[in-house]
Design a protein around this nucleic acid. Structure first.
Lengths: 334, 334
DNA sequence: CTGAAAGCGCTAACAG
DNA sequence: CTGTTAGCGCTTTCAG
């Protein structure tokens, strides 16, 4: 068991201060005699010393701990994002505490409260709804950075880092239309999410230039962004049209998984001529014989920008506003 | 900003203890007068109060925080596992701090040290190597539970929760052989990992009953359990045999991803007649036209057992030893 | 160069 | 029923 500074001091018959000075590498600065320095160092080398962050935090009112609240880690996008963010935080000496909301507002609020009680220095949140986002800004006692989602609250002083989903939606749709001009359908899971709204809007902008059809024929919606929703939409589609879409964009990887799952169940296989477009790429999608377009979100940049925004807020010079990261098109041709 | 107990006491002209008693719901027990009780409650209702866990932790020498150290969250298995574990911890009032090692021993040790400094009450680890596992048990100052991997250290008093990988390897191989008796190949990423060793051993037991071939012809190995390794093994296989395996088991989902990626790159598509077997199932794999067998690990049970083991250690009545959870076969027929 | 002391907000024990 | 006190291990400030 590593000792506390006081224990070391007693064992060595020097004052606590002296010990601390060498432990915090201020020995030179305070010109501790090399002899005592060595004494302490040797003792530590043998018995070890681990700084007690709890005590330190209490005194300094700073825990070097940050919170991250995401919908679910089983979503590969959030898994990757939190991986990146954790690495970045650690580089700067911060521990990250990650929790999942499962899309439950009330639970999300409890998570945030739990993090505040733990005196985290700040919290990253991918909020579930506009309501929950506003709840957080209204009750915030800590630096707050919204990640991936910003519901465009009317409240001021919000820092949010998101992907340029409108551009992503447009670019994706446009690329698919170049390949095959016939209808490209869109399955939207939870159309209240700003990410989805933006992607749909990009889709619309690209589609209306070539297609005059009523949107109802092209866009399916489902209340949640879960695998079941993708399944439901696909089943409804097949029931109605008697076939799978010629080309399909899903609003998220999860929805695409549900949709393809339904196809596989109904038809026994995924028709290879069905063109697929999605956000949040995942290797396995490319194993299909289908042509797959996907927008790769820049998780690295999202994490880096989010951390920077957090650091600035912690330092007391917050830079509020929306920061946008671009996604890049992964096309089946390249 | 929520007040501290002392601030409330001053504002209300009662003693700190009185305030704390009602805050900790011990008002009844100590028969605080309803009047003062109400006074405090009203004040809290208006101004709020958030318990300072840092101070509490310092005093109680207990943080209600646990650490989790895994190779990477971008591995869907660990993402799901940490999701389950986080939920379970929270149910019991614990916060979980998750970090990724990226398979780096030195970094892993630093992560554990960082968690100890934060005074976590215990640490879950999926260790990178036998060496790192032994390092942790040797230097442990906290309850320790190994997750998913146990290198079978000779040191005593280890608690580990793992999947029955030998059985999983056997069951998987056996099922595939029933379908198609010709050679079933095995791609092993990082054959020093106990999970992989056990899966290979299960494979061997199943295979030797029907096949007399030299193992070299059937098993490929690569030093790491990463996507590149799967790719390398597949490329080598194709170079040597001029074709893809008739049936392939990969030691992990990651390796399978790499292998299929190589196939797709070399041949333009995954030959549909290639039978696929893997551990750690993932929906998307089932979208292939290939027959896919997979062993579904019981992440729920792993998380629950790990948490229980941790709780027992924290309570001072450790139950050491290996706890095994069974995986279930997902066959293409069902 | 080294030492002493205050105090972060809480819990626990004891004193009225 | 309510109040006082010590002390968790650290940082910070002031005194030698």
């Amino acid at each position: 068991m590593a000792k506390t500074a006081e224990e070391i001091a007693q064992a060595l018959n020097v004052s606590i201060t002296t010990v601390r000075l060498v432990l915090t590498n201020k020995a030179e600065q305070y010109r501790i005699s090399p002899a005592t320095q060595k004494k302490v160092e040797d003792y530590v080398a043998e018995h070890g010393y681990t700084l007690n962050y709890t005590a330190r935090s209490l005194r300094m009112k700073k825990t070097y701990t940050l919170g991250l609240v995401v919908p679910r880690l089983s979503n590969p996008f959030f898994a990757k994002l939190s991986e990146k963010l954790e690495t970045r935080c650690r580089q700067e000496g911060y521990q990250l505490m990650t929790s999942c909301t499962y899309g439950d507002e009330a639970y999300e609020n409890r998570l945030v409260k739990a993090l505040e009680e733990r005196n985290v220095d700040g919290i990253f949140i991918a909020p579930t709804s506009k309501k929950s986002q506003e709840h957080h800004v209204k009750h915030r006692k800590k630096p707050l950075v919204f990640l991936d989602r910003d519901f465009g609250s009317t409240l001021p002083n919000i820092a949010a880092i998101v992907t340029d989903n409108l551009d992503a939606g447009f670019t994706l749709t446009d690329a698919m239309l170049r390949q095959q001009p016939s209808p490209v359908h869109f399955f939207a899971g939870n159309p209240t999410l700003p990410t989805i709204v933006a992607r749909m809007e990009g889709y619309r902008q690209a589609i209306t230039s070539v297609e005059k059809r009523r949107e109802d024929d092209l866009i399916s919606c489902s209340p949640y962004d879960a695998i079941d929703d993708g399944e439901l939409m696909m089943n409804a589609f097949i029931d109605r049209h008697g076939c799978t879409p010629k080309a399909l964009i899903a609003s998220s990887l999860t929805v695409m998984e549900g949709a393809l799952f339904a196809v596989k169940n109904r038809l026994g296989a995924i028709p290879p001529e069905m063109n697929i477009g999605t956000f949040d790429e995942y290797v396995m999608l490319s194993f299909l014989t289908n042509s797959v377009w996907s927008m790769r979100q820049d998780k690295e940049a999202l994490a880096a920008n989010a951390f920077n925004a957090m650091e600035e807020q912690i330092a007391g010079r917050p830079k509020f506003g929306l920061q946008v990261c671009r996604a890049t098109l992964m096309s089946p041709l390249s």
